[in-house]
């Protein structure tokens, strides 16, 4: 983007390599230790003598990691799917429909972004409890199913769809539901995917709420599982704790690496402008 000469480029590479090494160190050391047997770690060795998957096997066998991965996948998918539907419906109304309290309603939607989680989680916990949804996937997902950010993001996307297209579909006898389902949603596929990835990362990484509403391993998400593994094993089995952390980080890291370009383009468009 900004052109440099050869000398500058060399300096840039040196700086970047230095920064990258520092930046990646916590992850790198975590991966190294995940291959070091617990006893060796206590003896002070931070690098594996051989490629030893013992800690990973233990993480999978003892620590309930696979079950928690499934739980996280289910709750995150639930949140993302519902959020895409709920938010796109709202965004459609804000962009393509004309109605009385449009501006104030949109303002109220934006206001929900101002309300911090801690102003609501005590009462939300009681609500979920009253609904008998503690220890259920729905209990974890429910408060996150509507999102002002997603609505706002999709509103920006929908605004770029030419109005003529909507009007033409209407003239051809499509009702709004069909315009939404058969015209607007298919056209916006790319933005929907970007948003889905972003929200999936967020849902997968949720911490405080699942901590409050999941008390057993049947629904507990990986993040809460990690907390548990850390408090149970940290004194003796550091390698297992690290292996679990690596396993938990891997799916989202892969998703991020595959979609990094899409995110950087999509988020800058949708969030800031």
């Amino acid at each position: 983007m900004i052109k440099s000469n050869k000398f500058q480029t060399t300096i840039l590479y040196i700086i970047l390599i230095g920064l990258a090494v520092i930046y990646i160190l916590p992850i790198f050391s975590g991966i190294m230790i995940s291959f070091v047997p617990g006893i060796d770690y206590l003896g002070g060795s931070l690098f594996p003598k051989s490629l030893n998957f013992e800690n990973y096997v233990k993480a999978f066998q003892n620590a309930n990691v696979p079950r928690m991965m499934i739980n996280s996948t289910i709750t995150s998918s639930l949140i993302v799917t519902a959020q895409l539907i709920v938010s796109s419906l709202a965004a459609y109304a804000f962009v393509f429909l004309n109605f009385k309290w449009k501006e104030p309603l949109f303002f109220i939607f934006l206001m929900t972004m101002m309300v911090p989680f801690e102003a609501t989680f005590i009462a939300n916990f009681q609500t979920i409890k009253a609904m008998h949804l503690i220890d259920s996937y729905f209990g974890i997902a429910l408060p996150s199913l509507a999102s002002a950010f997603s609505t706002f993001f999709l509103r920006q996307t929908f605004k770029q769809i030419p109005n003529e297209l909507i009007e033409a579909s209407r003239v051809n006898g499509f009702n709004h539901w069909r315009v939404y389902k058969d015209v607007v949603m298919p056209i916006s596929k790319q933005s929907l995917i970007t948003l889905a990835i972003y929200q999936f990362l967020g849902a997968w990484n949720m911490y405080l709420w699942p901590l409050l509403v999941s008390t057993n391993n049947n629904v507990r998400t990986v993040q809460i599982g990690l907390r548990q593994i850390q408090s149970e094993e940290a004194l003796t089995e550091w390698g297992v704790v690290m292996a679990s952390a690596v396993i938990v980080a891997l799916p989202t890291l892969i998703i991020l690496y595959l979609s990094q370009k899409r995110l950087q383009e999509g988020l800058a468009e949708g969030a800031v402008k």
């Binding site: 920064l19 990258a20 930046y23 990646i24 160190l25 916590p26 992850i27 050391s29 975590g30 230790i33 990362l201 997968w204 990484n205 911490y207 990986v222 993040q223 809460i224 990690l226 907390r227 850390q230 940290a234 550091w238 704790v241 690290m242 679990s244 952390a245 690596v246 938990v248 980080a249 989202t252 890291l253 892969i254 998703i255 991020l256 690496y257 990094q260 995110l263 950087q264």
Partner: peptide
């Protein structure tokens, strides 16, 4: 770019464990 964006893909819980070691 992959390196510098990577922490976005690591949860608070996993990051905390990496840092607990650091």
């Amino acid at each position: 770019r992959l390196i510098f964006s990577s922490t976005m893909g690591i949860s608070v819980a996993a990051s905390s464990i990496f840092w607990q070691f650091m």
